Simulated scan of single mutants.
Amino acid sequence: MNIIIKKIKITVFAIALTTCNYFHAQKNKPETELDIVFQNALQSKTFNGNVLVAKKGKIIYEKAFGQADASNSVSLNKDYRFHIGSIAKEFNAVGIMMLKEQGKLKLDDSVSKFLPELPSWANKIKVIHLLQYTSGLSQIKWNEVNQDSDNMAFLQKTSSLEFEPGTQYDYNNNNVFLQRRIIEKITNMSFNEFVLKKILKPIGIKNAIVDPDEKEPLFAKSFNKEGKQDILKYNISGWTALNLRDFYKWSEAINSFRIINQQSTRELFEPFSKNSQTGLGEGTIENGKVTNHIHDGAAFNYQALLISNPNLTIILMTNNKQNNLEEFSNSIESILTK
């Protein structure tokens, strides 16, 4: 652990400790206690972003803290959309399962069935391997890939896999890339259009944007701890940005099986091995209910965290990544479960 991250963790712990001492002296509503945590974090510059907390299906806290970009002149509000990093991979995973439920693919289908332009190794890779990150594909060449066509060209030139599909876990965005291309091939729609029209619109999400550019209004721009704003670039397409309410709608739709059924959701939660990620991050279903859904994501200086169970949902999104969202979620849980 480097010194900077240590300092951040110590600062967050100090904020939480100070807050808890205050709570011991004065009995406040949970909303007030949460506000103290995040107002202190804003003052100490350890959190810049948006927060939503729901308890047993009811939103009890929803606020924005800090700046929308590096100019320090535009304040965030609750309507701002954020890049959510790897959490956006949930949309292609859910899209694959939607098509499975419609009988348009099987998880045991080979990738070559849908993308015959790929080399012969695509015969070995099944759709389930893409969902569980066990395809054996090599990592994306981020320094050389500038758009989808570049990455497809690299895959077409790839002569062999790193390992036999289904035998090892490797968290790899080429698995995501091919899921999105399969969806496009089956639906005759761009993946971005499919997400907006076929996944999000039916569940009432109207404010989401896919691959927003820097001119997009109400889209938070990320910046580092020195105040330098990131240059926004999508080496591969298909990254959905959400605001707090739409993110919460998405989480609730997963939990209530509104988009895909219970069996499909269970399959997406099934990891290849212990502690490995799935298309939905990680989660469990017990007695017909989602009892746990956790997913974190990061890109540039964006970072997001979703924690959801029947009693509590926490959504944290920042455009000034400091690798401390878990500490804040722990503080929130401590306040609401004491």
Rank of each mutant, 00 (worst) to 15 (best):
E144C: 14
S138Q: 10
W121R: 05
D109C: 08
F219Y: 12
N172Q: 12
L196G: 03
E162P: 02
K124N: 13
N188P: 10
T134N: 01
E162M: 11
I182R: 02
H129K: 02
N172P: 13
M152Q: 10
L137I: 09
D150N: 13
F154Y: 13
E193T: 15
E216C: 14
I183Y: 03
D170Q: 11
I125Q: 00
K215C: 10
K197P: 07
E184L: 07
S138H: 11
Q179L: 10
I140S: 06
E144I: 15
N143D: 11
D213E: 12
G136Y: 01
A153M: 11
E164L: 01
F194P: 01
P165F: 01
A208G: 04
E193C: 14
V145T: 15
F177E: 02
N123T: 14
I140K: 04
A122M: 05
Y169P: 00
E226F: 13
F191C: 05
G166E: 00
Q168W: 00
I140N: 03
I199M: 12
V111Y: 01
N143T: 14
I128S: 07
P116D: 07
I182D: 02
Y169R: 02
K113T: 15
K113G: 05
F219K: 02
E162F: 06
I182W: 03
E162A: 10
S149L: 15
I125C: 01
K225W: 13
L155H: 04
